[in-house]
């Protein structure tokens, strides 16, 4: 049995500087796997390489048994892998609904109506604001929109880059509970977070990234109770 996503010996560089220095990890179908690490550890670089925005220097990425490390980004999403990027990156001069419809750009079957309904059910506030330009939204609303938009492509694997960044504790709770909901509805999730506590308490498995290398991994519980993680990421002495 191979995992849904297999990343093997992945090396990614910006010019001559390696940001990811040979990492290997996998995501099993149905799980929430989280990648934690400090600023500049290489988390975003890893996700951008998986979704095809960056090309690896070496190593391989396999999704559902197919090599995707040479597939262009716009084709990867059609395979069932969506990426909600760091900083939300919603289209600011488009309305909520236009953003969501763009999320369905890759769909060949016309299920847009149902999928819109599903997104609005996940985040009712988006329904209220469907015809407002998204650029005026708060961080939390933009994050919901970014996640809703990613779900419009009906992904089997969702990459989420720091969904809780800059959010209030209440909004963060909402986002994390949505991650649980999505998993229970059958979406596998690879979650990147700086908020290790929140991420590890819902993750089935976690990896700790430090300057481009995986230094530790285990189940969410194991990592939460590990001394290294508690010291480095949970701010405990």
């Amino acid at each position: 049995m191979t995992a849904m996503l297999e990343v093997t010996d992945l090396v990614v560089a910006y010019g001559k500087i390696q940001a990811v220095k040979g990492i290997t990890f996998s995501v099993e179908e149905g799980q929430v796997v989280c990648l934690i690490g400090t600023n500049g550890a290489g988390k975003t670089t890893t996700l951008r390489t998986i979704s095809g925005l960056l090309r690896p220097e070496s190593g391989s990425i396999t999704f559902e048994g197919e090599r995707i490390d040479k597939v262009p980004a716009h084709k990867i999403v059609t395979l069932g892998l969506a990426h909600s990027p760091e900083g939300r990156r919603i289209f600011p001069r488009m309305t909520v609904e236009e953003n969501l419809r763009l999320g369905a750009f890759s769909r060949t079957e016309n299920t847009q109506k149902e999928d819109l309904e599903a997104a609005y059910e996940l985040f009712p506030i988006l329904a209220e604001r469907r015809s407002q330009p998204a650029g005026t939204f708060s961080g939390g609303e933009q994050q919901m929109l970014a996640m809703g938009r990613a779900m419009m492509s009906r992904p089997r694997l969702l990459l989420l880059d720091e969904p809780s960044m800059g959010l209030s504790p209440l909004m963060m709770k909402k986002i994390m509970s949505t991650v649980r909901t999505l998993r229970s509805q059958g979406t596998t999730i690879l979650l990147v977070e700086q908020n290790a506590q929140a991420a590890l308490s819902l993750a089935d498995h976690g990896y700790v990234l430090e300057v481009g290398k995986i230094v530790l991994h285990g189940t969410g519980k194991e990592l939460l109770t590990s001394d290294e993680v508690r010291k480095a990421y949970l701010g405990e002495a």
Partner: peptide, 24 residues
Amino acid sequence: TKQGRAMQAVSQDPDTARLMGIDV
């Protein structure tokens, strides 16, 4: 049109447009 909307998306944010499945 779908291509027209894709065009707007690319002009606003090309990388994110690619993540939507748009061939830039």
